[in-house]
């Protein structure tokens, strides 16, 4: 990506407290041990990119962070709240953690604006007018304020994904999770979504992003994490990670990605 953006990530930034902590976390699907001994500490303001082969457990890991999946062993602490079966805790964590899905998952029966105000009105108890004003602000930031009255079905994939990002931002989350936000998009739409994400990163949002967009990783990531077979194999700053991968599996993976 461009040079000026690159300098942002290499600048020494003061990072805050731990926002997300995974400690010796394990998860099984029935007999299948999908996540093994995951340890991850994400500081406030940090940008993490997660990559790895398909089926390595990347989605499962970030979905554990907002409890869309349940872990069976170890601890997950988000904003100082430990995730257990306590529904109130789970809802509290979800309010502060935004998530963007591969397939957007916009609500097709609501307009773009209503998609953005649904949670602020019902969860944050914001006045409707205020919620709408905030939603318009974020729709402007993702550069589609003119689509506010349309339904998701009337938008292109790239526009839908930007609405999905705005919808999450309307809850003013402390952390944003992205699960392959560009892999369902046509190539010409990938950039418009990545641009929004880069801007968000530069504004200091804490982000965990599962993606194979290596340009994005080099531009904004503080750390790149490589997963395989449910384990974190390698973890490094982008420069070292790409130029000097330690494990054989990482090298193999990178050679496959770059061969494309």
């Amino acid at each position: 990506m461009n040079e000026s953006a690159n300098t942002v990530s290499s600048t020494e930034r003061a990072l805050g407290e731990s926002t997300i902590e995974l400690r010796q976390m394990h998860k099984w699907y029935g007999e299948f041990h999908v996540l093994r001994d995951i340890n991850l500490d994400v500081k406030s303001g940090e940008r993490i990119v997660v990559c790895g082969p398909s089926g390595s457990g990347k989605s499962t890991m970030i979905r554990c962070i907002n409890r869309l999946e349940e872990h069976q062993q170890g601890d997950i602490i988000v904003n100082g709240t430990e995730l257990t079966n306590d529904l109130k805790n789970i809802e509290a964590v979800r309010r502060e953690v935004g998530m963007v899905f591969q397939h957007f998952n916009l609500f097709p029966h609501l307009t773009v604006l209503e998609n953005c105000t649904l949670a602020p009105i019902w969860v944050r108890k914001q006045p409707k007018a205020e919620a709408e004003a905030i939603a318009m602000k974020y729709l402007e930031r993702v550069k589609i304020p003119e689509q506010a009255g349309k339904y998701p079905g009337q938008l292109s994939g790239g526009q839908q994904q930007r609405v999905a990002i705005a919808r999450s931002l309307c809850m003013s989350p402390k952390v944003m999770l992205f699960d392959e936000p560009t892999s369902a998009l046509d190539p010409e739409m990938i950039k418009e979504v990545l641009d929004v994400m880069i801007e968000l990163a530069q504004e200091g949002m804490t982000m965990i992003c599962v993606t194979h967009e290596m340009g994005f990783a080099k531009t904004v990531a503080d750390r790149v994490i490589f997963m395989d077979e449910g384990q974190i194999i390698e973890e490094n700053v982008p420069e070292e990670f790409f130029n000097n991968p330690q494990s054989e599996r990482t090298q193999l993976f990178l050679s496959q990605i770059l061969a494309h």
Binding site: A92, G98, P108, M171
Partner: peptide, 25 residues
């Protein structure tokens, strides 16, 4: 199921998810 997940990821409780997202669709 992505609809339910998106709604819950926004912090909407299960009953609101059912009433506001799943049943209307």
């Amino acid at each position: 199921h992505g609809q339910t997940e998106a709604s819950m990821a926004l912090g909407l409780p299960r009953n609101r998810t059912l009433n506001l997202v799943v049943i209307p669709q």
